[in-house]
Design a protein around this nucleic acid. Structure first.
Length: 212
DNA sequence: CTCTTGATCTTCT
DNA sequence: GAAGATCAAGAGC
């Protein structure tokens, strides 16, 4: 079963049978409930300097729940999340990696979608140079991996999502979505706020629901 | 295949 | 001083 309905029948594992790019998403798209935006980002395409791919895995975070970096109020690191929607929040993870979020809802909501995995479609050669791996499935299957592949660093913190070097294009068609609990957290670990493209070979880990 | 550990920066206790 | 929205390499099965 393809995660996208007709006309494609088989699971999309190469770029040959991807749907095209929809219009560029602007701040109005991100100015909505963070979980709604998270689900609609599955199948969208994210590019940085024309390098990137189709979003296949994301997680939603909101100030009201304790797993969010914004939960304890604004700090120098999380300031961007407290601002208006449609901007990038980039943070340092475990002292080593960069990870990118899309700020959603409205000023003060401090809600964001963590981009966790892409299916590479644009600029594969540039990604392989940065990542020093050849397996396509390892280029962008994880938040730290995709940031490295796309050249994302703290330089992009606070950047607009609808102006160079960043672009996010709407999906064409509605894919089949799977949900599960978020990965690598201990607080609010039962909230099913992780969204993925069904049967994608490019997600960072299998999907799991709370309890099991 | 699964499990463990090191790397190394920011924030919080 | 400890924990954390991670990843890669090595050990063991």
């Amino acid at each position: 079963m393809s995660p996208f309905p007709a006309p494609v029948q088989r699971t999309r594992r190469s770029t040959a049978d991807l749907p095209g790019l929809g219009p560029a998403l602007t701040s109005a798209f991100f100015a909505r409930d963070v979980r709604q935006v998270a689900g609609e980002l599955i199948g969208a395409t994210m590019l940085v300097n024309d390098v990137g791919g189709m979003i296949v895995e994301v997680e939603a975070y909101h100030q009201s729940e304790p797993a969010a970096h914004s939960h304890r109020g604004p700090t120098p690191r999380t300031m961007v999340m407290f601002g208006p929607p449609g901007f990038a929040y980039v943070y340092r993870s475990y002292g080593i990696h960069w990870c990118i979020n899309f700020v959603c809802e409205q000023e003060g909501s401090a809600a964001a979608v963590l981009i966790r995995a892409l299916q590479p479609t644009h600029g594969l050669a540039a990604m392989r140079r940065r990542r020093r791996v050849t397996d396509e499935r390892l280029l962008c299957s994880g938040p730290g991996r995709l940031a490295e592949a796309l050249g994302i660093t703290d330089r992009h913190n606070g950047s607009r999502l609808d102006a160079p070097p960043i672009a996010v294009h709407a999906r064409l068609g509605v894919p089949e979505i799977v949900t599960g609990v978020r990965i690598g957290i201990t607080k609010a670990a039962d909230l099913p706020w992780r969204y993925g493209l069904k049967e994608s070979a490019f997600v960072s880990k299998p999907f799991r629901t709370a309890g099991a």
